[in-house]
Simulated scan of single mutants.
Amino acid sequence: IKDSAEAGLAEALPALDEAVKVLQNLKASDLSEVAKYSNPPALAKLVIEALCVMFQIAPTKVGEAGKKVDDYWPPGKKLLGDKELINNMKDYDKDHIPDKVIKKIEAYIQNENFKPDKIESVSKACTAMCQWTIAMHKYHYVALEVQPKREALAKAMAELKVVEEKVAGLEAQLKEVTDRLDKLESDFDTAIKKKEELANKAEECNVKLDRADRLLGGLGGEKIRWAATVEVLKGSIVNVIGDVMIAAGGIAYLGAFTGHYREKEELNWSKKLTDYGIPFTEGAGVRNTLSEPVKIRGWTINGLPTDSLSVENAIILSKSRRWSLMIDPQGQANK
């Protein structure tokens, strides 16, 4: 409908645009030039008559009584003197031209002399007014044809607006539902993720529980060993005085002697402790009393021989408060 209406208007608009363009170049002086005629040319008079009809200006009656005729020149001359004439032509209400004006102007439009190419020989201003009159007449009939289409278009546009409003409402509802769905999907994904995290934590807890059970099972065996160790330590506390006496004697006096002599002297000292009633641990001596397995292991890794004499010598060196004199022809101490 819109395209049909625009196509109809396209027939009249070029002529209308051309008439407006001519009016843009028209000056008040051009109109004054036409108004100067006391007895205007017939073609000029024809144009002025048509202009008066368009503006519904009544003619004057001239002639004898009973034979008077319409004369548009006096009121037309006055119209040409109106300074707002050009603006009034530009702003003419072309969409509401009265039917009586159209019927009256029809005679001028059908006149073979009422043509711009003929009027052009008389006056530039008259040519412009002729073009304008023809354009208004043509636009009127095109508008009459287009008006039902305009009304149909307005009705269709109103219906379209109602439909668009309904569509907008439905789209808003759809968006609301879509947003809720997106939120539910997001909550679902979050719940699934949390479920997976809890499942992983549960699996981790099961692994930890299994390890704890194994650890407790292992510690159950250690309990027996620790109990035995506690008993040993209790006995060691009772025997610590005798043990330290033998070990201290070994550090102080037995460093220069062979392993066999050291064992003999430690055995003699043990007998003396028994005679004096001092408790001690069987086999107490420098190695059994003062040795640290971890340190001894490190010494052997670094080249210390594993025999008892070498180990005892190393213990004596580590526990002595003074520098020891070492008889070491093999150079083992330097390692």
Rank of each mutant, 00 (worst) to 15 (best):
G76F: 02
G76P: 02
K77D: 04
K77L: 05
K77M: 05
K78R: 09
L79V: 02
L79C: 03
G81W: 13
G81N: 14
G81E: 15
G81M: 12
D82L: 06
D82G: 05
D82T: 05
D82N: 15
K83D: 15
K83M: 09
K83C: 12
K83Y: 13
K83G: 11
K83E: 15
E84F: 08
E84Q: 14
L85H: 05
L85Y: 15
L85F: 13
I86A: 06
I86P: 04
I86W: 04
N87G: 12
N88Y: 11
N88K: 14
M89V: 13
M89Q: 08
M89S: 10
K90M: 14
D91Y: 08
D91E: 12
D91H: 14
D91V: 11
D91A: 15
Y92L: 15
Y92F: 15
Y92V: 09
Y92D: 05
Y92R: 08
Y92M: 08
Y92W: 04
D93Y: 07
D93W: 04
K94S: 07
K94L: 11
K94F: 04
D95F: 14
D95R: 13
H96I: 02
H96L: 03
H96T: 10
H96W: 00
I97S: 01
I97V: 05
P98M: 05
P98G: 04
P98K: 06
P98E: 06
P98A: 01
D99T: 10
D99N: 12
D99E: 11
D99V: 08
K100L: 08
K100W: 02
V101C: 00
I102D: 02
I102F: 02
I102K: 01
I102G: 01
K104W: 02
I105W: 00
E106R: 03
E106K: 07
A107I: 12
A107Y: 14
A107R: 10
A107Q: 07
A107S: 14
Y108G: 01
Y108I: 06
Y108N: 07
I109R: 03
I109W: 00
I109T: 01
I109F: 00
I109S: 00
Q110R: 11
Q110L: 14
N111C: 07
N111M: 11
N113A: 12
N113C: 06
N113V: 05
N113P: 05
N113H: 11
N113T: 09
F114K: 00
F114T: 00
K115I: 09
K115R: 10
K115H: 07
K115Y: 06
P116S: 09
P116A: 07
P116M: 10
P116G: 08
P116Q: 14
P116R: 10
D117E: 13
D117C: 03
D117V: 08
D117Y: 11
K118W: 03
K118T: 01
K118N: 06
K118F: 09
K118M: 06
I119K: 01
E120L: 07
S121Y: 10
S121H: 10
S121G: 09
V122Q: 12
V122R: 03
V122T: 13
V122E: 09
S123L: 07
K124L: 13
K124T: 11
A125Y: 07
C126W: 02
T127D: 06
T127V: 08
T127Q: 12
T127M: 13
M129F: 11
M129C: 06
C130Y: 00
C130F: 01
C130A: 07
Q131M: 14
Q131V: 01
W132P: 00
W132L: 05
W132C: 01
W132Q: 04
W132F: 12
